[in-house]
């Protein structure tokens, strides 16, 4: 490791787990080369995994679910009753979305999703989680200080709003159904989907107001 700061404070014990690791890029390259040489990994398959979650599966999927729920009461009811089936009806299915639960924000309840133990997240509707969702500070604080976390995102709630934090400790995956913003009565589903941010579906922010959208 290229470490100009010299040795760190762990070196007084004789455990190799406390050695600073070498550059992760080099280690990953070495592992990839090894696995390809041993025939355990198909390089073309790696590209498909990456392309799928970098370009094809992401939070626009979830935004379509939310916008549909906002305009279609029957769909909203189905989503609350059987989220897995209602989401699958839009063809958002598969890994890390096998068992879905939708939690709805209202005037009196605000929902927030976390995975304190790792990084569980509903891939088919939101794609891969952002770095902050996987970070130690978010995982530590979302359950113990949710209002402090929300304030960091600029989301201030009235004291009479109940905050519900959903810790994804099993294979249930959570999608927040944010509140439909005021002043959107005349908007169609596509326009509404433009107001639905990834962060609003994790619960750290509200959906955008009309005019803030993309």
């Amino acid at each position: 490791m290229n470490d100009e700061t010299g040795h760190d404070h762990h070196h007084d014990h004789d455990h190799d787990h406390t050695e600073p690791p070498p550059d992760p890029a080099l280690r990953v390259k070495a592992l990839e080369s090894l696995l390809i040489e041993k025939g355990l990994v198909d390089p073309a398959a790696l590209d498909v995994f990456i392309d799928t979650y970098e370009h094809r599966v992401g939070p626009r999927n979830g935004a379509r679910v939310v916008a549909k729920a906002w305009v279609d009461r029957e769909y909203r009811d189905w989503l609350m009753r059987d989220a897995t089936a209602a989401i699958a009806s839009l063809d958002f299915v598969g890994r890390q979305g096998e068992h879905m639960s939708v939690v709805e924000n209202t005037a009196s309840v605000h929902n927030l999703v976390v995975c304190t133990l790792c990084s569980c997240y509903p891939w088919p509707v939101l794609g891969l989680p952002p770095a902050w969702y996987k970070s130690a500070p978010y995982r530590a604080r979302a359950v113990a200080d949710p209002r402090g976390v929300l304030a960091e995102f600029g989301t201030l709630l009235d004291d009479d709003v109940e905050v519900r934090v959903w810790d994804s400790t099993a294979e249930m995956r959570y999608l927040v159904l944010p509140r439909r913003p005021a002043g959107t009565e005349g908007m169609n589903e596509d326009e509404l989907a433009g107001l639905v941010t990834r962060n609003s579906m994790i619960g750290v922010e509200h959906a955008l107001a009309p005019g803030q959208g993309t």
Binding site: T116, L117, C118, P130, A131, W132, S135, A136, P137, Y138, R139, A140, R141, V143, A144, V149, E152, F153, D167, T197, R198, N199, V204
Partner: peptide, 17 residues
Amino acid sequence: HDLGGMHGLGAVGAEPE
């Protein structure tokens, strides 16, 4: 890994979406 409730880790520091 069992991080719920740990103190001292600082701000979430999210990048803009």
